Simulated assay, not measured.
Amino acid sequence: MKGVRRYALVALVAFAAAFVAVMVARTWFAPAPRVESEVHALLHERLTLDADQERRIHALEIGFAQRRAAMEEEMRADNARLAQAIAAEHGYGPKVSEAVDQSHTVMGQLQKETLKHIFAMRAVLRPDQAKQFDAAVVKALTDPGQ
């Protein structure tokens, strides 16, 4: 019975470590898409888009939402692999390192896709709108209060 308790304690500690790793990764490495939210608020609330711009941006948003959902699913799978690696190694070993590297690869891909999406939406705007758009993107990326 003592062995079962020890195994349960190890499993609990491994789960807690995996949970903390996921939370740290989400907080430090994959923050909420604040830039995207700021940009979308500008597009849909403050810029006066014509019907063609609305249609084109809507199509871009649908395509990006599908790509983002697929990458977020991949990140959830990466987090599960990270949790398994932590449970298996009980420390920062090669499996944990590999799982972290893989999750960072997908996070980087999502960041690149987000930027491509932002630039694709920018291409739909008139020059006066693009100027406001650029300012909102720069502010969202550089304002430490956000």
Rank of each mutant, 00 (worst) to 15 (best):
L110H: 03
R34K: 14
A70T: 11
P94C: 01
E36A: 09
H44Y: 14
A99G: 04
R126Y: 09
A99Y: 02
F133N: 01
E61C: 04
V22L: 05
G93T: 09
Q102R: 15
L9Y: 06
Q109F: 05
L43D: 01
D50Y: 06
A32L: 12
A99K: 01
A87V: 09
S103D: 06
R81Y: 05
L42W: 06
G3E: 15
V35T: 13
P33C: 01
G3K: 14
K112M: 14
A77E: 14
V96N: 01
L9P: 00
A59D: 15
S103Y: 00
A11P: 00
A85R: 03
F133C: 05
A85I: 05
A130W: 01
K131E: 15
D143N: 15
A88K: 11
A85E: 02
L12G: 06
I57K: 00
V35F: 04
W28G: 12
V124P: 00
D128C: 04
L115D: 12
V137Q: 03
H117T: 07
R81V: 02
D78R: 04
G93R: 11
N79R: 07
P127K: 05
M23A: 13
P33M: 03
Q132F: 06
V20A: 13
K95D: 07
V13M: 10
F119G: 00
F64G: 04
M107T: 11
E113N: 07
R34H: 10
V124K: 01
K116Y: 14
G3D: 13
A17V: 15
M107E: 07
G93C: 08
A87K: 04
D143Q: 11
Q66D: 10
R6S: 11
L47T: 06
M1N: 10
E73V: 05
H58V: 10
R26D: 11
D78C: 13
P33K: 02
R46D: 12
R6N: 07
A123C: 06
A136S: 12
